[in-house]
Design a protein around this nucleic acid. Sequence first.
DNA 1: CATATATATGTAACCAGTTACATATATATG
DNA 2: CATATATATGTAACTGGTTACATATATATG
Lengths: 174, 174
Amino acid sequence: MLYICVTGNVLLIMEEDFLIEMGYPGLTARLKRLSDLFVYQTKEFYKEHNLDIEPNWHMIFLILKKHDQLTVTEISELLHLSHPAIVKLINKMKKKGYIDSVKDKNDYRKYQLTLSKKAKEKLPVLETYWSAGEQALEELLEGNSKLLEQLSIVERNIEDLDFKTRMEQLLNKY
Amino acid sequence: MLYICVTGNVLLIMEEDFLIEMGYPGLTARLKRLSDLFVYQTKEFYKEHNLDIEPNWHMIFLILKKHDQLTVTEISELLHLSHPAIVKLINKMKKKGYIDSVKDKNDYRKYQLTLSKKAKEKLPVLETYWSAGEQALEELLEGNSKLLEQLSIVERNIEDLDFKTRMEQLLNKY
DNA sequence: CATATATATGTAACCAGTTACATATATATG
DNA sequence: CATATATATGTAACTGGTTACATATATATG
């Protein structure tokens, strides 16, 4: 399943990759495949260094470092993820003692979430590992942020008019 | 959670998005979030048009259209996905009658997979829906394939030296 | 002010991938 | 040729998202 690939004046021996060959319709699976790869390898990396955190906790650490105190709903809105996703995440972090949760005095439906003392103390160590991850990613992106920019374009356009509606419109054209 | 965003000479009211704000470390979750969005909306689209197929079957239809006959292992290698992922996918497609599977005459461990008669007959209809999806995606990418190219760069670099190893190397620098 | 509606959180069932392990068959080697 | 090793497929348990539904509290309205 190997093939020769000529890019510029460099000759590469490459693995054949049908998802790439597919073009546009292969995009969805490539996004998932790449995301999974990052998640699994980061998990492994943390494990080998005995950090008892999960890859996606990074975003919660950062968001609560910035905003100090947030509810589940606020986090889910800021991250554009569903609230059950955040509930599960937060429950795991609570169980490990990284999150403090206190009932809101003015609205008894809400719980105000903050980073625990343990979490704040661990931050400096965690940051050295996160920094290695960020640099590794920069290497993979070859030092430019075009991938992030291209993703932003898609995200903005989807916010404007969602994917399904676009498919419906294009289908009805014929 | 809204904010004003000035791009060029256009003023936009945007949802705040912390994953974008995070920069590089937000990438993994954005890839997953976007992939999920495509999958869920495509699923919905198929359902509303009473197509009894799943979004990720598209790649199996195409790969078996091109190669005619493949085994589970060959498919998993061509797609760079694990073989259990393909086993599950193929079992569902078999159950719906889209895949024929015959034991290899020369190697009794293998099953040769092909598109069934039903699958081949349905292809022309499916292609009109896939075409709408492809065009919708082109719209979202604003007609250029930079996102695909940037992904290819990352994929190539990872094949060269994996993400975890890069993190380890960068960590040991300090 | 009683009741309808909206919001915040939580739970259940599902989905598409993963790794680790099991089993059957093929191939290579002492 | 017997046995060790490698390969093809399959299964189990896990992960991190989703939608749909349930419950408690807050807010708005007749």
